[in-house]
Amino acid sequence: MSDHATSPVSWHSWLTTTSPESRRQAKLGQLYRQWLAFKKNPAAVVGLVIVLALLLLAAFAPLIAQYDPLAQALDQRLLAPSAKHWFGTDALGRDIFSRIVYGTRVTLVIVMLVVITVGPLGLLIGCAAGYFGGWIDTVLMRITDVFLAFPRLVLALAFVAALGPGLENAVIAIAFTAWPPYARVARAETMIIRNADYISAMRLQGASQMRIVLKHIVPMCVPSLIVRTTYDMAGIIIIAAGLGFLGLGAQPPIPEWGAMISTGREQIFDQWWVATFPGIAICVVALGFNLLGDGLRDVLDAR
């Protein structure tokens, strides 16, 4: 196999071969074909680049930001963008560019925590409801309806108000309000495939209900949930920013984008940069996730 690694041409043929020799090769080949399809969509590639840039900014924040995001310099308050402070400074003399760069970490932490709690929860509830049907379906879906009946931001607000403001509580509140659509998507998907012959065939082989749901139904629902998640990230970022803006999310002095806009609103007419740059950051990242979601849908959810 070492000779494959030497030239890119044989890598390509190794990955696209129609008769792979191992499980791993088949899996990698499948991924590679999806990547080739993904690459054809320029908007999706732009989305991917934005998301990768976000990840890199978060990872290398200390190297990229020239200033400490928390360091106040009251003699340098509200400076306009310049070579020294690219995005200007805020009311406490903190460098806005550095705060935005560090803010990527806060945003990513919120998004990741929400996604790892919401994805599996929605998937399991949806698949169980869809596969078993009957009263299990009724109970689970009515609970879902209750959560869906409230506007997301309002429900999140209620949760944060009850739990107390803070980053962790914001994550919990967003997660609580974000799972119902996932359960709905997974349920709809499951109801389509639960009567498929390949699921009947599994039943006929004596597979337990658990095994059918986890090993055969869940893999069919995962792609549409990944797509849904990527779309939702934009919404999650905006809700997190909204909670921050209302002072219920990340608490000062944490550099959270929504909170930064909130503190900048008093100066919005005289010192426009304080609120504008975090706003642009939220907008670009939300757009990036949306474009990525579009591309992933075409590749993963193709029918």
Partner: peptide, 22 residues
Amino acid sequence: YRAAQMVFQDPYGSLHPKKTVD
């Protein structure tokens, strides 16, 4: 299930699309 098995009509619907032959 070890004694009796079934072959379905439509081979396009009876194989899990995300599973290899193996």
